[in-house]
Design a binder for these strands. Structure first.
Length: 272
DNA sequence: CTGGGCTCCTGTCAGC
DNA sequence: TGCTGACAGGAGCCCA
């Protein structure tokens, strides 16, 4: 589910409210992707300083140092509960605080909450080490993209998804950005010309920015911390539209598989 | 270093 | 109606 827009929408929906909160308890459900890495009791009394984002990871920093690195995986979402609601079968992490209880719900449990002594040390540093540039960072330009694709024979769609060049575009937005840039998702990365790299970098930024404005995509169950759904899925040009007419040329949208992931594209508008 | 494939887990839906 | 298999928004890890 959550790509950069959904993660950022989630962050914006609860960061303000939880800032300054003091942890009063932690409740763990079934195991997530990795263990917390700390006795949950050790978090009691810690004060939340801020919530930031790196790629699709959230970092909930404590004033005393250290913090929780959180990932929503494929099916995770964060929301406030009134603190009295019993955890459901898919609720696997509760952070009870003086300002409310933040709850991670994640049916598939690909998500994670991991304690780290700092963002640039310990488990967090290891997990974030290979991440590419933030799409909205000034350094993410067409020439950066072009340079990073040198020697990459993998298809451009998969290079975007890999996240080591630029973070944030998952399956939906990688497909949408390639449509917007008019690029065939099967094109080997190193064959993307410099001008088309400019177009693609702009399309990645533009697509993610638009999704952010629309509150992300809610395909089935994404909600921000206030329960608000996103609306980008209503504006998708290719994702999930196999067989339907292209909004630009009317050609049937195609679905192929790349790296075990579905790719949607317009065979006429998107060129090699 | 690059690339390909597998894996974690549960829910939903299409097809028979 | 009930069962089975495919597929789903991610990404770390292992091996060639």
């Amino acid at each position: 589910m959550p790509e950069l827009p959904e993660v950022e929408v989630t962050r914006l929906s609860f960061a303000q409210r939880i800032r300054g909160a003091v942890v009063t308890g932690v409740l763990l459900g079934k195991p997530l992707r990795w263990p917390l890495g700390l006795d949950p009791g050790a978090l009691v009394g810690q004060r939340v300083a801020d919530v930031t984002r790196r790629g699709k990871y959230l970092w909930l920093a404590f004033a005393e140092g250290g913090g929780l690195l959180m990932h929503l995986g494929m099916s995770g979402s964060l929301a406030f509960t009134d603190g009295l609601a019993e955890p459901g079968r898919h609720d696997h992490f509760d952070l009870a605080t003086t300002l409310g209880t933040l709850r991670l719900t994640d049916p598939r449990r690909f998500g994670a909450v991991v304690w780290s002594p700092a963002l640039d040390a310990g488990p967090a540093a290891k997990l974030l080490a290979g991440l590419g540039l933030e799409p909205f960072a000034p350094a993410f330009t067409g020439s950066h993209l072009h340079g990073a694709l040198r020697g990459r024979r993998v298809a451009i769609k998969q290079a975007l998804l890999a996240g080591d060049i630029v973070v944030g575009a998952g399956n939906i937005y990688a497909c949408e950005a390639l449509f917007e840039a008019g690029i065939d998702p099967r094109l080997p990365g190193h064959k993307l010309s410099r001008p088309r790299s400019e177009r693609l970098a702009a399309a990645v930024r533009g697509t993610l920015a638009r999704a952010l404005e629309l509150g992300g995509s809610t395909l089935r169950d994404f909600r921000d911390a206030h329960g608000m759904a996103g609306a980008f899925q209503l504006h998708a040009h290719v994702y999930g539209r196999a067989g339907q007419p292209c909004h630009t040329c009317g050609t049937a949208i195609r679905r192929i598989v790349q790296g075990q992931r579905a790719t949607y594209f317009c065979p006429l508008c998107q060129k090699r």
